[in-house]
Design a protein around this nucleic acid. Structure first.
Lengths: 364, 364
DNA sequence: GGTCCGCATGTTAGCGGTAACACTCCCCCT
DNA sequence: AGGGGGAGTGTTACCGCTAACATGCGGACC
């Protein structure tokens, strides 16, 4: 049955054939070359769509590849060429909607561009962890790194862990060192606040994201700016941790303050908690209190009441990250680009007019 | 200033030094070896924690690595050893909470085990896409593949795309071909249904996930089994697409049927839509209708009313996937293991007793 | 006191590709 | 007719690392 091993009985203790690095012991380039009657280099050229190959030869090589089920070995290509067609992504809080959706956008776009994505999900934002992640990704041969750096500390660690390869970051700018993509949090917060003010509320309270988070702070800024422009009083924001639990806790504090008639919440999850706290305290939304969230998670339209919120297109953010990365990788990079993804206020039913001290009439 | 290029002026047109494959032009093993005064092989041994190295030598090599900022080149290691310490993950619907949380669990556990994770997020469940993903992952040198295969068709495609490397799948079993991890959907659905029956409801309606999804069908089975055991009538389930939007649509249909006093919904997102539909139709939860969801998303506790639901520990699912993978990779694999992650009914406020034809008294 | 053995380390030959260069043809121009 | 040049292909030398084998050395053993 078994084929005779080539040179199986030649003199002396033969070196053991080393395990192949290919998956499933498949064919390698030399096998394809032999079968197609060409050199390895020609196979390589076919593989890389090099123009200088006669169509007929190309077809012969392709056929040989198909027949042998040939699959190029990425590590060998990477080693020889210095390019891996792999991108590294560092993410935080990957289970939350925003980051997860952004990640999905990056993945999708990467796939279309023929890149593979290696992800490292970090929990701690300390410098050592970030640096370690960058090291592992680069060691793995990543052609570039996309870092979701939602916290200031992460951004700083990233600058620390500097390296030669292209990089794109999300949310945090470092003096035009790397291109940055971000949702326009300041403007989104401003829109939300102005909408509430326009409805007649004397001022707008704010439940913010945690200190140190870029987006959270940008939203605080936008909110504060809108209040200032309108000459409205700015209460100190309450800081949550993005979770519905924290929204609920903080919402209870606001619920007991009869002066609080309008709340801008820094994300929809916390808004869910706020809505519940208000409901439990017997304050109706939007009749007594108006609430605006942020992000427009898919469930926002179905909350009770449907939540007015600021929509962020996370998928688009992810796609833009990727296109910026490709610019750096394959075209002439513009240094220090900053892409801002516009936001849109989505009017639903959680806001109402404030008329002579009492709130009425839903308006979105 | 510049060091003299070694052999820079030796005879004739020198070959151009090829670009290094290392990131940032860093040091390579030979540099470390030279600096430590040992051979490359010894450096390699230190790198791989080989025991046969004198502690003193080991320390010298480590110091040299540190001083040069040496970082091993993964592609070279992979090429030479056949192992990449990279795992491939194929996921679907990566922006939804369940898959995203599972992915996060996998990532976290992989990191602890020293593996890197490459993710391919698929949108279409067709065979070609799945096969392509497997090919790319293997070509990239993945040591094994974890496939989140929530749909029957994906599972079948996976069997089709068979290959030599270890594999772990999520949700779908293929006659004990690969180890499988899954939440215990059937039992979770049964618990939920039985709880509602125990509260006195004559029967329980079901809003199911889409046809073809393993978990959705398992929940239908569990629900049906519980009804059968109790001798309760089984209405045809309504099939949604997991989204709150579809839950809202389907919920409207139920809301107009006064006989519908208890609903088991196949995930929490759809339940959000159902809650809204019920509210809009003027049917109170839990007084008129009891609702149970599935998954226990972090917001479930803050819905109005707080949602009774079946908790699934997605992070644990992810971790178990990884440990099963490691078993195959590094230990003696048990073939065809099936790990089932238990579920737990979390009682909150969306269910109530049905007394003499009218519902009352919240009980979780 | 020589042999055997095991530890610590070095040497050699790849892993599977790609870059640079060399080499044929064959056509076109002068 | 001879030379230049480009298209198509082959040759060679690596990329950075590891497996297998080889070597040197000191101590235990008889």
């Amino acid at each position: 049955m078994g084929e005779p091993e080539p040179e199986a009985e030649a003199g002396g203790p033969q070196r053991v054939r080393r395990r192949r690095a290919t998956a499933g012991g498949g064919a390698v380039m030399a096998d394809v070359a032999r079968r197609a009657g060409v050199s390895g280099q020609t196979v390589s050229r076919v593989l890389n769509d090099h123009p200088r190959v006669r169509p007929e030869t190309r077809e012969r090589v392709r056929a040989a590849m198909r027949e042998l089920g040939y699959r190029p070995t990425a590590s060998a290509r990477t080693l020889a060429s210095g390019r891996s067609r792999t991108l590294g992504v560092i993410s935080f809080d990957a289970a939350r909607f925003g980051p997860a959706a952004t990640l999905a956008g990056i993945n999708e776009a990467a796939q279309e561009a023929g890149y593979l994505v290696s992800t490292i999900a970090l929990t701690a934002a300390d410098q050592a962890a970030v640096r370690g992640a960058v090291d592992r990704l680069l060691g793995q041969g990543a052609d570039g790194i996309i870092a979701i750096a939602p916290q200031r500390s992460v951004g700083e660690a990233l600058v620390e862990a500097d390296h030669g390869r292209p990089m794109v970051t999300l949310d945090k700018s470092f003096g035009a060192r790397f291109p940055v993509v971000a949702g326009d949090s300041t403007s989104g917060a401003r829109q939300a606040t102005e909408h509430l003010l326009r409805l007649g509320h004397r001022t707008v309270r704010h439940i913010a994201g945690p200190v140190g988070w870029i987006a959270a702070e940008a939203r605080v800024d936008g909110w504060r700016a809108a209040l200032k422009d309108a000459g409205a009083e700015a209460y100190e924001p309450l800081f949550g941790d993005w979770s519905a639990d924290s929204g609920h806790d903080l919402g209870r504090r606001l619920a007991h303050d009869p002066d609080a008639t309008a709340v801008f919440v820094s994300n929809d999850q916390m808004a869910v908690g706020v809505l519940r706290a208000l409901h439990e305290a017997g304050r109706r939304v939007p009749e007594d209190v108006s609430v605006i969230g942020y992000d427009d998670i898919p469930e926002a339209a179905h909350l009770l009441p449907p939540l007015t919120t600021v929509r962020t297109d996370f998928t688009e953010i992810g796609r833009r990250c990727l296109s910026l990365m490709l610019d750096q990788l394959e075209r002439t990079p513009e240094p220090g680009v900053r892409v801002t993804i516009p936001t849109e206020l989505v009017l639903r039913k959680s806001c109402g007019h404030l008329l002579r001290g009492s709130a009425r009439q839903a308006q979105g």
